[in-house]
């Protein structure tokens, strides 16, 4: 944490963007993991009120391998599978 010039309010320190060295014309598939996987408590995406929408079930059949990948991802990031899927769906345009 850093203090403001007045020395009163502590604030977080700025971090370098993960894609700073990535040329803008790099295709998305070559850019590594999708942007939603880079988000979390370390960026302003954690800022703002939690979702107030009512939660509903979305019964979707997916390949087993995809379920495994999402579970692994959730475990790695200390999140629930639902949270990982929710983040992924939020990335869809026009949500």
């Amino acid at each position: 944490m850093t203090t403001t010039p007045s020395g009163s309010t502590p604030r977080p320190e700025l971090r370098k963007a993960g894609d700073a060295n990535l040329h803008p014309s790099t295709p998305q598939s070559a850019a590594g993991e999708p942007s939603f996987l880079r988000k979390g408590l370390n960026t302003g995406d954690s800022v703002g009120p939690p979702d107030r929408d009512k939660l509903v079930d979305l019964g979707v059949k997916v390949p087993k391998s995809l379920r495994k990948a999402v579970r692994d991802e959730a475990k790695r990031r200390g999140m629930t599978v639902d949270d990982v899927v929710r983040e992924a769906l939020r990335e869809r345009p026009g949500r």
Partner: peptide, 20 residues
Amino acid sequence: AAFTSSDVLADARPGVAADA
């Protein structure tokens, strides 16, 4: 410069722009 407006927008936590 160590930081740019790209870093500011990527991070976007309150007040971090001062570092850039």
